[in-house]
Design a protein around this nucleic acid. Structure first.
Length: 1195
RNA sequence: GCCGUGGUGGUGGAAUUGGUAGACACGCAGGACUUAAAAUCCUGUGAUACUCAAAUAUCGUGCGGGUUCGAUUCCCGCCCGCGGUACCA
């Protein structure tokens, strides 16, 4: 009887489904075991061969644990919200729900084919309201909670409010940016003000963060949609833009997330990555005063700029700074218009005047611009008073509303300009004495208030190196950039800031070139007053520490490079001569050139300098975390809606606010789920808002238009599996108490610092509120490697002028050698012998006449040379013609006054060149769907049919064919390199597919997909089958196995059980192969050997084993059988064949009894001819005898 | 850049605690069966040198050093691939 996998697999799939073989229920009498897979995002491309790698591994483990007697929870579901479905919706108009449902159906089909033992009754889908109701519910809990640092756990916000009501803001409760208040004051605060204060505590809170804004697409882009500062789709410019967004206060959990790692059975690598991500470092905040002497900024001595007294300045400046870094959207827009003297006058923003902070002020003319409808309401309440006071100091105030700013910024700006035009220099009324106001300034008030305030604060982990700090570096987006920049440096700084703005954080840190710019200002070393120049550079990020560093070139590699490039001094401060081999960053050595620190060891110096810093009040010790609070808003449609309305218009009880609009108010639990509305269009809602803004009803109701990010639903799904259909709770308490947490979690290492940190935080949070009994969600973690794809690459020819000029001039240079000159400026791109000049333009498809006319008028006067206008598109396609043309002109007399304009390009279409030509053209690589490619040859017909853009494409072929390049990389839809398991299963069956994936190599290792070796696994299954059946049929006997046959069995039992526990599945498959090979050779078809072997193999190949189990006459399922016992007695050996090494090199083998003593062994071995050959009879220097391992003779 | 991880025959990989490098499988070559092919089975297969052959020697785990009787395994310094780098999932 032949092995017919199709029949067998169909048959048992049905039986399992009918019998509910894999359905589990909570059973307090059986030990539980929870085996979890990272759930997939159901992409339109379907499951690819990389997904099942982890699923097969976990399925084997789950099945193994069941055979070992555990009650195993092994569920599957879908992370169904996500960008791809939304992108598809934008392109095609298909609702993401439809796309997603289709994809899920396909995934389910594919998964079922592979024979997984999932309990499908527990399936969850994050995009279904039944599920996201609870995601929203948890969000409400986060919003309604704060982190009590004293209790070191999250608590409901009510406990905080109670504390405020009792004692006001106590020292323990102080948070950055929260102004002190008493209990009485708290009670007197408006609802809005209270809400604003509480926002500093909530675990889900509103704040500001930069996003990738693409004006042309009118949308916010994900980081991987941005390449080189341009949008990946369309190549439009992308800018960083600040927006108000939701955040999760994960930083409150940083320490617990770190400590928790010690209790987890994860790989060291994984723990290390999380530790480094959280990045706890102990150091100090140190304030560097700004230098007065070296700055030449305006107004230092002019009374006109003294706008408040020193005490008020000091309290106001913190507010001002805070506001500067967190402008409202309207303020940000206005600032864009006012900054950099765009109105002709210098404006400052968030500038303290008297006891107030002006939004924008032009000190020169005394004009204040106020934007209303913003967060700091305390100012609003004093509008009247404020205007009066400001007038008294000689200021005029103009006000605009948010609506005016959003509506028409141009009108606002021209109004400001008009007002400025009517004003003269600021007149200080006589009754005000500016000098009086500025009394005491020389000690505490800022030199250089005009340059941003008192001091520059840095965070450093190496305060001991402060005497080696020869310059400071601030992030280009640092809040003080504008004020630190001197007029002379302004242009350069603006240019640099613009450059940095176009780059992502990753690009900035990757940059190998050293870039930066001098601000023109200086700080002073707080210990010895040495002036230190302040630079800005992209390698300093605003989000880390204070966004400013003291650079110590002697002790930091990056700082050193920077110093070299900008010619800054290096002061050696640590003598490492007594530590040879210590690297520059090791904390070893003796301090030198460091005043009071001289002679101290680095570790002691750190302590000493910290004490001194605190004593002198120039800074304090501080623990800093690299980890930031987690951005939780996405300007997208396909995500969970926030259960939030904005008061007061839309929420009862908020009538008392008068005008303010942006106080978030949570929905009540019974209003959940807040279901995603239908929208008229999936395109962005305009002005950076999500497509939800396209729903009129939604906007009218005052709902938040952003949605939650991808990780919202996936941060807690493993809890829902415990009680997937519960309509009343996210999961019932008794079920959570039974299943507790995940025992083993299979997933990719790519989630190390995203999903795995967020989930841990959510779990800890739910634990704090008493909803889950465990503090950690995933006890053991297995990282399966990725199966990489083999992508195919097309080479698209660039038609950018600069690329083409370079390429074409290189071509010409080959022919004319040194006669070619490339011109950097003007209209001429290339000239040859000054006889022929060539201008190269990228033709945009319109205005051909315009190109022609400008060209003629420009070159008409050229009487002694030929001027040629070529279009990039045309030259690339027919370079021979153009070179011939040039050649003809050079050789003839045509050149005098000859003007040539290229004919209009036939079409503006992408041009691709075959691999082999790619170096001959200016090309950029582009992925192509591997389904359109066979053996690296592109199917042109199908390619052209695949999209509108492709239909227009042109090709440069090699021998009549288009050869693609290839690359091994992540298998993903966006790289068009997905291989699905379906074909493999059709051809070889699911058992074979499972075993082959395992056989490929260790699961934690990545490897490119290649099914070349699959026939080996297939042969194994057939060989196994043939132990039971031959041509004549069933051949299993009840005969007693031989000792050797038992040995084969028990060797295998031991090996398989050991390897499964260690998750070395690839060697399991090898051992099965060895066992089958040995039994085949021994012609063994004995039940006593084969039956246990069937059970051993069952977790790997569930179908064939079930069939054989039933054929052996068993009634139940093999997957519910008992795991075979290993018996040592069959493996006991009395002899071992020792390798005999001479000087560590194996030269001979000899069989010796295992209980032989060293002396006997020595005598015997040294007498061997194969040994005396090397020793020449002499006594060896050494004789090494490792029992059961090796014998080594040293001569 | 930073963090993590990997590099072994023509290929995927094995070697579990420092102890016979290349298990198992693919591929390839030769042979058997067959009219033939497929399938199946058998033999060989790291490189080099020598040899009719058997055998033997030298080299060999990304590169360069080191520790050790002995290193794929431990240490130091490099090179390259892959994953992550906070809005792909």
């Amino acid at each position: 009887m032949e092995f017919n996998f199709k029949e067998i697999e169909d048959k048992w799939k049905k039986v399992w489904a009918k019998n509910g073989t894999y359905t589990v229920t909570e059973d307090p009498n059986t030990p539980k075991y929870y085996v979890l897979d990272m759930f997939p995002y159901p992409s339109g491309a379907g499951l690819h061969v990389g997904h099942p790698l982890g699923y097969v591994a976990s399925d084997i483990y789950a099945r193994y644990k069941r055979l070992k007697g555990f009650n195993v929870l092994h569920p599957m579901g879908y992370d169904a919200f996500g960008l791809p479905a939304e992108q598809y919706a934008i392109e095609t108009g298909t609702h993401p729900a439809v796309t997603t449902e289709k994809a899920i159906k396909r995934y389910k089909e594919q998964l079922d084919k592979i024979g997984f033992s999932y309990d499908w009754s527990r399936q969850v889908v994050t995009a279904e309201p039944d599920y996201y109701k609870w995601t929203q519910w948890i969000f409400l809990k986060l919003f309604g909670s704060w982190y009590n640092r004293e209790a070191n756990k999250a608590e409901l916000i009510e406990t905080l409010v109670a504390k405020f009501e009792a004692n006001g803001l106590s020292k323990e409760l102080a948070r950055e940016g929260v102004e002190a208040f008493t209990a009485e004051q708290w009670k007197g605060f408006s609802k809005a003000k209270q809400s604003q204060v509480l926002m500093n505590y909530r675990l889900a809170f509103l704040s500001y963060a930069e996003v990738n804004w693409c004006e042309a697409l009118g949308t916010v882009l994900a980081n991987d949609e941005v390449k080189d500062g341009k949008s990946e789709r369309g190549g439009h410019p992308v800018e960083r833009r600040k927006m108000r967004q939701w955040f999760l206060r994960i930083t409150e959990y940083s320490d617990r997330l770190l400590d928790g790692l010690n209790t987890l059975d994860w790989s060291d690598a994984m723990k290390e990555m999380q530790r480094n991500w959280i990045g706890r470092s102990e150091g100090a905040l140190i304030k560097f005063d700004l230098s007065q002497t070296l700055s030449e900024g305006e107004g230092l001595n002019s009374p006109r700029y003294h706008t408040t007294d020193s005490q008020t300045w000091n309290t106001s400046i913190d507010f001002a700074k805070e506001h500067r870094s967190n402008p409202t959207e309207a303020e940000a827009i206005v600032w864009e218009q006012l900054r950099a003297k765009r109105t002709g006058y210098k404006f400052r923003r968030q500038h303290p005047i008297d006891q107030f902070i002006a939004d924008f002020v032009c000190l020169e003319r005394g004009l204040i611009v106020e934007i209303d409808g913003k967060i700091h309401l305390e100012q609003k309440e004093n509008d009247q008073l404020r205007t009066e006071v400001l007038n008294r100091y000689g200021f005029t105030v103009v006000r605009f509303t948010n609506e005016q700013v959003f509506g028409n910024i141009d009108t606002v700006v021209s109004k400001i300009k008009e007002t400025l035009a009517t004003m003269t220099e600021r007149v200080i009324p006589s009754e005000v004495d500016d000098n009086e106001l500025s009394e005491g300034q020389n000690s505490s008030l800022p030199f250089g208030e005009g340059r941003g305030g008192v001091s520059l604060e840095v965070f450093t982990t190496r305060p001991d190196t402060i005497f080696g700090a020869t310059f400071m570096v601030i992030a280009p987006e640092h809040e003080l950039v504008d004020s630190l920049t001197t007029p002379e440096q302004k242009e350069a700084v603006d240019k640099y800031v613009a450059y940095v703005k176009s780059r992502t954080d990753v690009e900035r840190q990757q940059e190998k070139r050293v870039t930066g710019e001098f601000t023109g200002s200086y700080a002073v070393n707080p210990f010895n007053g040495t002036p230190i120049p302040i630079y800005m550079a992209e390698y300093v990020l605003a989000g880390y520490g204070t966004g400013a560093i003291m650079a110590v070139p002697a002790d930091d590699e990056r700082d050193r490079k920077f110093a070299e490039k900008f010619g800054l001094p290096v002061i050696e401060i640590i003598d490492k001569s007594m530590y040879p081999g210590a690297t520059i960053e090791d904390k070893k050595g003796k301090m030198i050139n460091s005043e009071f620190l001289n002679g101290l060891e680095v570790v002691d110096a750190i302590k000493a300098v910290l004490d001194e810093v605190e004593k002198r009040g120039i800074g304090q010790r501080k623990v800093n975390y690299k980890q930031r609070d987690a951005g939780y808003s996405r300007q997208r449609y396909w995500g969970e809606p926030f259960p939030i309305k904005y008061g007061p218009k839309h929420v009862e009880g908020f009538e008392d606010l008068g005008g303010a609009e942006d106080i978030p108010v949570p929905l009540s639990e019974d209003q959940l789920p807040l279901v995603l509305p239908e929208v008229s269009s999936f395109k962005p809602g305009g002005d950076g808002r999500s497509p939800l803004a396209n729903s009129e009803a939604w906007v009218k109701a005052g709902y938040e238009t952003d949605t939650m990010p991808g990780y919202a639903g996936s941060s807690w799904y493993f809890l829902r599996y415990m009680d997937a259909k519960n309509p009343n709770e996210f999961a019932a308490k008794d079920k959570i108490d039974y299943w507790k947490n995940v025992d083993i979690y299979f997933g990719g290492a790519e989630h190390a610092v995203g999903h795995l940190l967020y989930s841990r935080m959510w779990h800890k949070f739910l634990h704090d509120l008493g909803y889950v009994p465990t503090d950690e969600p995933f006890q053991k973690m297995v990282n399966q490697g990725m199966i990489q794809g083999r992508s195919n690459i097309l080479y698209r020819v660039s038609e950018l002028e600069k690329d083409v000029v370079k390429w074409f001039s290189d071509l010409l240079r080959k022919k004319y050698k040194k006669r070619i000159i490339i011109s950097e400026q003007g209209n001429i791109d290339i000239s040859i012998d000054d006889k022929v000049v060539i201008e190269i333009k990228r033709f945009d498809g319109y205005n051909y006449r315009m190109y022609q006319d400008t060209f003629y008028s420009r070159f008409r006067h050229y009487t002694s040379k030929a001027a040629l206008l070529f279009f990039t598109n045309n030259i690339i396609r027919d370079s021979k013609f153009y070179i011939n043309l040039i050649d003809t002109i050079l050789k003839s007399s045509l050149s005098d006054g000859y003007l040539f304009v290229d004919t209009k390009p036939q079409k503006v279409a992408p041009l691709y060149v075959s691999n082999g030509f790619k170096d001959k053209f200016p090309c950029s690589p582009k992925h192509v769907d591997i389904n359109l490619v066979h053996n690296d040859i592109l199917n042109l017909k199908e390619f052209k049919r695949s999209s509108i853009e492709n239909r227009e494409s042109d090709f440069v072929l090699y021998k009549g064919k288009y050869y693609c390049g290839y690359e091994v990389e992540k298998m993903s839809k966006s790289k068009y390199n997905v291989v699905t398991p379906d074909d493999v299963i059709d051809k070889y069956g699911a058992d074979c597919f499972r075993m082959f994936e395992m056989f490929l190599g260790p699961i934690e290792q990545s490897k490119p997909w290649d099914d070349k070796g699959i026939s080996g696994t297939y042969n194994f299954l057939r060989k196994f089958w043939r132990l039971f059946y031959d041509d004549k049929g069933w051949k299993v006997t009840d005969a007693e196995p031989t000792k050797e046959e038992y040995k084969v069995l028990h060797k295998t039992i031991k090996k398989i059980a050991d390897d499964i526990e260690r998750l070395n599945y690839n060697t399991c498959v090898s051992s099965f192969m060895i066992a089958v090979n040995e039994l085949t050779s021994a012609n063994c078809s004995k039940r006593k050997v084969l039956e246990p072997l069937v059970i051993l193999l069952a977790p790997f190949a569930p179908f064939i084993t079930e069939e054989l189990w039933s054929a052996l006459g068993n009634t139940g399922s093999v997957h519910q059988a008992a795991y075979p016992k290993f018996e040592e007695q069959y493996l006991v050996e009395s002899e071992f064949e020792y390798p005999i090494s001479i000087n560590g090199k194996t030269r001979a083998q000899v069989k010796l009894a295992l209980d032989l003593s060293e002396a006997d062994a020595r005598a015997y071995v040294l007498g061997l001819e194969s040994v005396t050959k090397w020793t020449n009879g002499a006594e060896p220097k050494k004789f090494i005898y490792v029992k059961g391992r090796i014998i080594n003779v040293v001569v």
